[in-house]
Design a protein around this nucleic acid. Structure first.
Lengths: 338, 338
DNA sequence: TTGTAGGCGTTATCAA
DNA sequence: TTGATAACGCCTACAA
């Protein structure tokens, strides 16, 4: 059964294609009797317009490309949800692309999205080396909003959180609780670097010289973080700052396997809150990123750039906040009662 | 800066549009000298084809619509990941639609995807009432694969797990451990009904008459499940079967707040395993669905139907398996040592 | 107020 | 082997 097209509706309603089109796009200049006839024909024939043809003709853009590195990461899940919500509210929709931290896949998807004539991209790039590609895309007229991992060195819109400050807060909290040998496990990406900076700054502020052995790369995944934590534990830290949610889980697991009591023997603070953080083995104290707001803000910036391609480039920086739970918060109670 | 189009490449390479098109689609019948000239022009001008125009002309379909009810649900996250992987492997991509259990939103998205000329849909429908709409879509020529919540009563492809059997296993496990007053919290959807059936069957097999007061709807979300659990606890169950992951979390939280020891006072088994289930307050015993396989299988069925629209309708049923952890597994050890 | 006709960027058919 | 041309389904000057 071939597809019903505009011509079929026109034939049925005994008008021209142009008139049907006008009705469908509710142009004012169409007699109500004719309008009814057309609408009726549409109903009868179960006609629906072809968005491809429409887009090709009108040049409209109503799809947002979302490129992230890991669907399984709670951070991105919340961001995606926010972007989807915001897109839906704008009568737009999203193409979801998971790069899995794979450069080839990122390239493929960026090219694809460009070929799709997307309205714009919301991207979390894996690495600084991709900046060039993104720039080229942008020059080509594709609005791009960076999230999570911003790249300095070029005019781009982006939404970020203050990672340095967030990390500093977390570590300061640990210091206040009396921890002195605070270890850090960070992911090998720019945000990880920033969190490492915050960590070091907090230590220095407290007159402590950062110890190389306590600063380790935790990888991207729970598994690698688990192993990294095991190694870190050889240097007997009294607290661990896990610089993203996957690492938090890996660390939690390692501490559990080692039979170390949290927070009594080792305190734990994570970066990234998770919906079920309070239900973990030990409820996790964490630096919460405003993930939903990040997604919303990203879409807002995107729409802004779409409507005004020459607007000044803007980076929105959001603040994190520390959610204190038992994985180190119990110290607070002890010190408070002391 | 206007977009580079086929004509521009043709002009630059001093050939016709047709020839450029042939090169781009690597037709055999094109002289290699000309081919090189064209490829060079493409390179120089940074030309990339317009997928919209190409699709319109060729009638090809390379996007898969994925319609699910809740991005935040771990079950769907894993399925989405699998679908995305499989799509990528097929040079296709996905439009992700989150319905949030909202009928209006479902309708909007289904219409949208139809207008987008998607290759097919992978859908988790909220309710049986949507069957009609899906049927209409299917009649219209859109391949549809149902996941999670299958609807009997119409010829449709689908991937499902054996919910009745999975639930039965979970409850049998509890029975074997000596539990007698086993409560169930289930979601108000068809899968919830099936799991309820399995629960009841297991009880009857053990000579226990299901008690109405121990069977409660847990809602869709953690919050509602939390409250439902609190009510259920008034009827002092010695075990709880939480029929999806959100409910598991809600139940876990309620038990914790009430200060009930798991599994000593109340044992807990969930449906749906989560990557971090072992890191929970009490590691959760759960009926694990093969989520990744579900996603893969869904795409496989979809491709099958696309290539052969008249193939027999097929429902693939996958098996679950019980992952025993401490939230009730400790009983096993006790009874084993007894 | 309605209809005619051309074009969005590509591919496929036909000649040459 | 290559080029001109129509067509994919729709929208929009422009003319009537």
């Amino acid at each position: 059964m071939p597809k019903v097209k505009l011509q079929d509706v026109a034939d049925y309603a005994q008008v021209s294609k142009a008139t049907v089109s006008r009705v469908l796009n509710n142009h004012p200049t169409v007699a109500s009797s004719i309008r009814d006839r057309v609408l009726n024909a549409v109903q009868i024939l179960d006609y629906y317009p072809d968005r491809l043809a429409r887009r090709l003709r009108k040049g409209t853009r109503d799809v947002i490309g979302v490129v992230i590195s890991d669907i399984q990461n709670p951070y991105f899940q919340s961001v995606i949800r926010a972007v989807e919500d915001a897109a839906y509210a704008q009568q737009m929709h999203i193409v979801l692309c998971n790069t899995d931290e794979d450069t080839a896949r990122l390239n493929t998807y960026l090219r694809l999205l460009q070929e799709e004539n997307v309205a714009g991209l919301i991207v979390s790039v894996t690495d600084a080396e991709h900046l060039e590609l993104l720039h080229a895309l942008q020059q080509n007229g594709t609005p791009i909003i960076l999230i999570d991992r911003l790249i300095e060195g070029g005019p781009m819109d982006g939404v970020r959180v203050d990672n340095v400050d967030g990390a500093r807060q977390a570590v300061q909290h640990l210091l206040k609780l009396g921890c002195r040998r605070i270890g850090i496990l960070y992911p090998p990406v720019i945000t990880g670097q920033e969190r490492l900076q915050g960590y070091q700054a907090a230590l220095r502020d407290a007159g402590i010289t950062p110890d190389e052995r306590l600063m380790r790369v935790g990888g991207y995944r729970v598994e690698s973080a688990y192993h990294a934590t095991c190694e870190l534990l050889d240097d007997v830290p009294d607290a661990i700052f896990a610089a993203n949610s996957m690492i938090s889980l890996g660390a939690l697991r390692a501490l559990r396997v080692r039979g170390l009591r949290i927070p009594h023997e080792v305190a734990l603070v994570g970066f990234d809150d998770m919906p079920w953080a309070q239900d973990l083995y030990v409820p996790l104290t964490a630096v919460a990123q405003p993930t939903y707001e990040i997604g919303q803000e990203a879409v807002r910036l995107l729409l802004r750039r779409i409507s005004d391609p020459n607007a000044d480039f803007r980076t929105v920086t959001l603040r994190t906040h520390l959610v204190v739970r038992e994985s180190c918060g119990i110290f607070l109670q002890e010190s408070a009662s002391t």
